[in-house]
Design a binder for these strands. Structure first.
Lengths: 252, 252
DNA sequence: TAATTTTTGTGCGCTAGCGCACTTAAGAAC
DNA sequence: GTTCTTAAGTGCGCTAGCGCACAAAAATTA
């Protein structure tokens, strides 16, 4: 349970910062409620805030013409939404939808960039996080092509649980289908199979995970790969985020 | 023909830099021959050089266990290889293979980072490029899931031609299959269909593109989307890469 | 010229997921 | 209760791509 040990009520990414930096950064943020099915951004829009979820789940979804949406990533309190504005482009290539209600810290893009400019620890952390997302995206691109629905569903449920911190997930088959880019009946079939294996049970928008270990076995290795990638680059002890200097080490 | 107007013998990305910056940067590079089927990096290895192809094509390929390789991107003289080291992580999540012989500028990672630290125009350019690659990767992740092989093959051939600057591509069906993550016979079938439509012809490792416009129609919209993304962020006139300041504007 | 290797083509049965249409069941509202 | 709405299940024919095996043709080597 890679993200479960984190304390509720905070953002794990920001928790990796030294206290001083974190406190200063959070001071520039406001708290925003994430209401279920809110569309935070549509594809192509200008990003005017960067978000750090504390509770709740946001899915990043890419749409290509004549095809359904596809969830590219789930963002919970282990991550951030739109940190890539530090790359200098404030457009989002995909939309962001709240899939579990909760709340998040958010900061105006300009303020965010200002903070990042003047805080090397924060900068380093976010660059690392962007690299992790990039690596996981490579994995997803392969996974989408090669892996059958049942394993992809298992992966998604695990990712959902990691971010909701609950054994009972509030999500319908219809929504899962939208995230996976398949028909709802496809999810019915795959979920039925997982239920018959006593890994999960569900009814009308509630999915209960009974056997997390078994679900991992039923999922593709991509789930573990993603968790490993995150842990490798964003685990607290090894991160060694530094506070100084901010002059010579302007970017890297 | 989005990349064709570029002069041979240079890297288009670096061409977007002001003369002064470009000359200084290239001065720190060495020229390296790209030999067909060279594996420049394997997945997970430490990146000790960043490459700027001048001629030739390199494919970035992700491997997941029990499945074939999958080409994630083609890199020619419109791009760069491993620029993401500026994110602070010098590992590569995928391997890089030379698919068309040629040559490239390359620079040691440490030197590269040093240059990027002290050259805001270069930094801005590379961040933009990374964003473009990221956006295209989102597109690819969807494309892999939704689009049939024939359209994906058409897209790949167009991307190949853009980077080889020739109408005759040197690539076997076997290699195309490896890049697309499918069986060779799948490519035989799809390529046969494109040939019957008089869009291409081929024999024993040579693919000739007869009708580029038709091939665009036969490809998925993802090809055009990728080209547009590149043009939007990396077109010469609009880029406005600046030289100063390098103090206040340390990162963004 | 003959043998070998590389590249491309064909056939066949199989499976995952599709579109479409319809059914069942559980809550919610009346 | 009864009706209505939302969520989940079933059936059917279809297609893309799979694995496997084998055939044909072009290029290379002997």
């Amino acid at each position: 349970m890679p993200f479960k040990q984190a304390s509720i009520g905070s953002n794990q990414l920001l928790n990796l910062l030294p206290d001083k930096n974190r406190i200063q950064f959070i001071d520039s943020c406001e708290v925003l409620a994430l209401n279920l099915h809110d569309v935070i951004e549509v594809a192509g829009s200008v990003i005017d805030h960067v978000y750090f979820p504390i509770e709740g789940i946001i899915s990043l979804e890419k749409k290509i013409p004549d095809n359904p949406y596809l969830a590219i990533a789930l963002i919970g309190n282990e991550g951030a939404l739109f940190p890539h504005v530090i790359l200098g482009e404030d457009l989002t290539p995909c939309r962001a939808v709240v899939q579990n209600a909760g709340f998040a810290l958010r900061i105006a893009t300009a303020d965010f960039i200002h903070q990042v400019e003047h805080d090397s620890a924060l900068r380093q952390l976010l660059k690392r996080y962007i690299f992790v997302i990039y690596s996981q995206l490579l994995q997803t691109a392969s996974c989408n092509l090669f892996h059958v629905l049942e394993t992809r569903l298992a992966k998604l449920l695990l990712a959902f649980q990691d971010r909701s911190q609950l054994d009972e997930l509030h999500v319908t088959q219809e929504l899962l289908a939208q995230m996976l880019g398949v028909r709802r009946v496809g999810v019915t079939k795959a979920a039925g199979s997982l239920q018959r294996q006593n890994l999960i049970s569900y009814s009308r928008g509630n999915v209960i995970i009974h056997n997390r270990k078994g679900l991992k076995t039923a999922s593709c290795l991509c789930y573990l790969a993603d968790v490993d990638t995150y842990a490798q680059f964003l685990k607290a002890p090894e991160t060694n985020l530094t506070n100084e200097p901010d002059v010579d080490e302007v970017f890297v």
